[in-house]
Design a protein around this nucleic acid. Structure first.
Length: 545
RNA sequence: GCCCUCGUAGUUCAAUGGAUAGAACAAGUGCCUCCUAAGCAUUAGAUGCAGGUUCGAUUCCUGCCGAGGGCACCA
């Protein structure tokens, strides 16, 4: 872990600034891209130049003079490069010594403690039970699960929550669609409702109902809706389970009507004079809270709009005292959640601990054509189909390796064609190779039993690997701060690249027993990091491939 | 028309305001008597356009162009 060393250097910089009577500033201290510039680099002189009205190079020289007096330990050389960067070289011994640290920490190497003693709620997927999960839901599901893992890696106690509504208009149409298919099976006219669900699965459900309940059901029977919901929900849960995603809690929107939360919340807004009636509808006066337009809360039909239960639900989450509340929403919700936040704030709630993650939609391509996804029109590719076609790890990695802000194109033909050259295998292959080396070494009786000489690891490819290994905790923290799992994916990709390079240039098991032991140690440490990273991303760590 | 997100190599995507913009696929060339060639080495190839802020801009700001999503008494 580089952090203690970085702290030390930061402190030294602060001391140097003080003794030079320079103002203290936050500055960067990070590994430069080009290793010729050293192991860590700071821009402090560049930041001070304007204020001090001096050239950055001169400032850097003064700082370095001070640093040379007060900085001791692993820093072997401090240099200055144009336009005024201060570069620190760290001795090999520091990096070599970290191997033991990684081996000792093992499965907890890289874990942070930001969330110690805290709870987090991550709401994701939240698809209503109107049909199977699509590839689009897949992005949500995998993102939400990976974010949950990132939080757990910071020691948060995480509740994975699925919110659904089984009482709305869509569910009514679903029931009518099933009913229509049921009567169709009985040879009656098909009266599929306008906007009805057209998928094959509706027919399957109708068939099950016919088998289980006979042919005497009346139009409007509750069985259509209830059975459809049950079957579809089980299907959804199976799909998620197949991807390794398990929810701790399912919350039904209905709860907040039944327990009075919604009435209570409407009354409170009314007391605050934020509710009014117009044209037979009930409106929320968002305009008086800085928004450009008011929103309908209760339609003239008497049905509340989705904002009402959503707000009650978020209030419920706040009252459950989570330290962190995360919503994973598709881009279509981007405009909606601010209204929920506005209402919560109007009710006097602090919403600083709510983070809404918006991911952009996936464009599916098939045969070069874009597919518009609609559950209703059965114009979709199910998540199950995709997983069956290319495998869990490929699907998970695909969604986790890209920023959630990117509009991704998912070419189904390409995904199937190229599933055996998916980048995830590059990472897993590194893990499998290491596992093979270790079992090989065991067979040959080469073990280091905790004793090895780290100073033997001085090959360029060994040092490059080592210097990147120690940065794992940094990337775990970055992933937490940004809540973007791709930071981990990017890191693992680079780590694997450095490992494969090492593998091709440095033989682990050789006649030189001492060197073999040291290399076995670095390789074991690498495997620990890979496995930990895979763990966060939810992909498997194969022993062989 | 207004709001959100995006525009990087032939293609799909990376890049805490930092130094020489990275991968993968596709194209070209080498490397398995040696721990797994799902690998390594190597060639070629990119920041939509115009301004601005900055010592420094793919990154921040403004405008334009282009793509996706939203702007419902749908969720």
């Amino acid at each position: 872990m580089m952090t203690p060393l970085k702290e030390k250097i930061r402190n030294a910089i602060t001391l140097a600034l003080r003794s030079l009577s320079y103002p203290e500033k936050d500055c960067s201290l990070a590994p430069p891209k080009n290793i010729d510039f050293g192991d860590l680099s700071s821009n402090i002189a560049l930041l001070l130049a304007k204020e001090l009205k001096k050239s950055p190079m001169d400032i850097a020289k003064n700082i370095v003079n001070e640093l040379n007096n007060n900085l001791t330990g692993h820093t072997t050389n401090i240099s200055i490069t144009n336009p005024g960067f201060i570069n620190f070289e760290i001795d090999d011994h520091y990096f070599q010594s970290q191997i033991i640290h990684i081996l000792n920490k093992n499965q907890v190497y890289g874990k942070g403690d930001v969330g110690t003693g805290q709870t987090a709620n991550v709401e994701f997927v939240s698809a209503n039970p109107t049909g199977p999960l699509t590839v689009g839901h897949g992005r949500n599901a995998i993102l939400g699960d990976a974010v949950s893992n990132i939080l757990e890696w910071q020691d948060f106690k995480v509740t994975r929550e699925y919110y659904f509504n089984d009482a709305g208009r869509q569910m009514r149409i679903l029931a009518q669609s099933v009913e229509a298919r049921y009567f169709e099976l009985l040879g009656k006219d098909l009266k599929l409702p306008e906007d009805g669900y057209q998928g094959e699965y509706i027919k399957d459900i109708a068939q099950i109902i016919l088998d289980e309940n006979g042919k005497d059901l009346n139009s409007g029977s509750n069985i259509f809706k209830n059975k459809a919901e049950e079957i579809i929900f089980n299907d959804i849960k199976d799909s998620l389970k197949k991807l390794g995603i398990n929810f701790d809690q399912f919350t039904n929107e209905k709860t907040f009507y039944e327990n009075g939360d919604i009435d209570k919340f409407m009354n409170e807004l009314r007391t605050k004079n934020l509710i009014y009636e117009k044209e037979n509808a009930t409106w929320f006066k968002t305009s008086s809270l800085g928004k450009d337009q008011d929103r309908v809360y209760i339609k003239s039909s008497g049905e509340p709009t989705y904002r009402v239960p959503d707000t009650a639900y978020h209030r419920n989450k706040i009252k459950r005292n989570f330290d962190l509340i995360i919503d994973v929403f598709g881009a279509d919700h981007a405009d909606a959640y601010p209204d929920v936040i506005t209402a919560l704030e109007a009710l006097g709630h602090n919403t600083d601990h709510i983070r809404v993650l918006i991911y952009q939609f996936v464009t599916l391509l098939k045969g070069g054509e874009k597919i518009k996804m609609s559950t209703r029109k059965a114009d979709f590719v199910t998540l199950d189909d995709l997983v069956n076609e290319v495998g869990i790890d490929v699907v998970r990695y695909f969604f986790v390796m890209r920023s959630m802000n990117s509009h991704l194109d998912f070419d189904l033909d390409l995904a199937a064609d190229q599933s055996d050259q998916n980048p995830v295998y590059y990472l897993q292959y590194a893990h499998a190779r290491i596992s093979n080396i270790i079992s090989r070494a065991n067979d040959l009786g080469v073990t280091f039993e905790g004793v090895f000489d780290p100073s033997l690891l001085k090959h360029d490819d060994e040092m490059n690997l080592l210097k990147y290994m120690v940065r794992f905790p940094e990337f775990v923290d970055l992933a937490y701060e940004s809540l973007e799992p791709q930071n981990i994916a990017n890191y693992l990709q680079e780590l694997s690249a450095r490992f494969h390079k090492f593998y091709n240039h440095c033989r682990v098991i050789t006649d030189d027993i001492e060197l073999s032991r040291a290399r076995l140690a670095i390789v074991k440490a690498t495997r620990i990091i890979l496995a930990n990273g895979f763990n966060i991303l939810g992909i498997s760590a194969p022993e062989r491939m």
